[in-house]
């Protein structure tokens, strides 16, 4: 009994205070989440409200026009598809190749360490800088012109660090026991990569690729540098065609004085968001399927 009393004097009653403190932290954390979600919701609701009346089939199939009631996004949608398809076909093989080299082949030297640090830094370079680089390198120096190809190459450079980082992460997550088993069966380094490491890492790599491409699809700044703020009434027919993309078309409409064009811009944003949502859902689907596989 006496020892109990001694204890309580050493530990004065503070449980209630500690619990209240915990409550306060809980609400602070919750409000952090709400700030993000609520502002996003307000944005979405406003855009839906502004743009829903302008959504129609001919909005997708018409070219832009001075008359808002017949204006559409056809050239921008096709331009975006062209750009992203080309960007993907450059960035995926190069990004995965670089990741395999860095994770599996590169000797651990100061040189590779510098490369690694640089790749992480490149992922944080503002996109307009890539736009200017693309303008100087592809449009002028390589004289590809203000074409889809130049835009796609620029976006490929922009998202390459993201793809490399994601792919490295995915390759690193492949258990070493798989590699050991493969080597122990007499496979070479490349066979181990091709038949064991890459198949296991692929779903995560694809998730990273899709997220990187959805970043590229929403970029306006580098494309403005490459292609300028153009008003096109044709769709690209080859990689050297002039082009525009959805964010630029949206930007273009927003900058018009008439209210109707703001409605069109909102409608354009809805389409862009739908595409992004679709791509992200696909990435989540891939990740879940992968998790299920590895839990079996």
């Amino acid at each position: 009994m006496s020892s109990n009393q001694a204890q309580s004097s050493l530990f004065p009653e503070n449980l209630r205070k500690r619990k209240r403190f915990g409550q306060i932290i809980y609400f602070l954390l919750l409000s952090c989440v709400l700030i993000g979600i609520v502002s996003l919701l307000i944005l979405l609701v406003r855009i839906l409200f502004d743009g829903i009346d302008w959504l129609s089939w001919h909005f997708l199939t018409n070219f832009p026009s001075r008359h808002p009631e017949i204006a559409g996004m056809k050239s921008a949608i096709f331009g975006t598809i062209w750009t992203i398809a080309l960007t993907g076909s450059f960035t995926v093989p190069i990004g995965i190749g670089a990741a395999i080299y860095l994770e599996e082949y590169s000797p651990k030297s100061w040189f590779t360490q510098i490369i690694e640090i640089n790749i992480s830094n490149l992922a944080g370079v503002p996109s307009i800088v890539y736009g200017l680089l693309g303008l100087a390198l592809f449009v002028q120096w390589m004289s590809i012109g203000r074409s889809v190809l130049a835009g796609a190459l620029t976006l490929a450079l922009l998202v390459l660090p993201i793809v490399i980082l994601a792919a490295r992460e995915a390759i690193r997550a492949v258990p070493d026991s798989y590699r050991q088993a493969s080597y122990a069966l007499g496979s070479t380094k490349w066979q181990t990569q091709k038949y064991v490491v890459l198949p296991s890492a692929m779903p995560s790599i694809l998730t990273g690729v899709i997220l990187a491409l959805s970043r590229a699809i929403g970029e306006a700044a580098p494309i403005i540098a490459i292609s300028a703020l153009v008003y096109l009434t044709f769709i690209p027919t080859n990689p050297l065609s002039r082009f525009t993309v959805m964010p630029i078309q949206i930007f273009n409409w927003v900058s018009r004085p008439q209210d109707e064009f703001r409605g069109l811009a909102a409608a354009g944003i809805i389409i862009l968001l739908l595409i992004l949502l679709g791509m992200n859902s696909f990435a989540i689907y891939l990740r879940n399927r992968y998790q299920k596989q590895s839990e079996e």
Binding site: S177, A181, S182, A184, L185, Y195, P199
Partner: peptide, 25 residues
């Protein structure tokens, strides 16, 4: 050949696990 401490089949089908070494070689 070698068998490891922790069973480490590949995340492939039973058939492909056994066929792996054959295909590789």
């Amino acid at each position: 050949g070698m068998v490891f401490q922790k069973p480490n089949p590949f995340p492939k089908s039973i058939y492909d696990n056994v066929a792996f070494g054959l295909r590789i070689n």
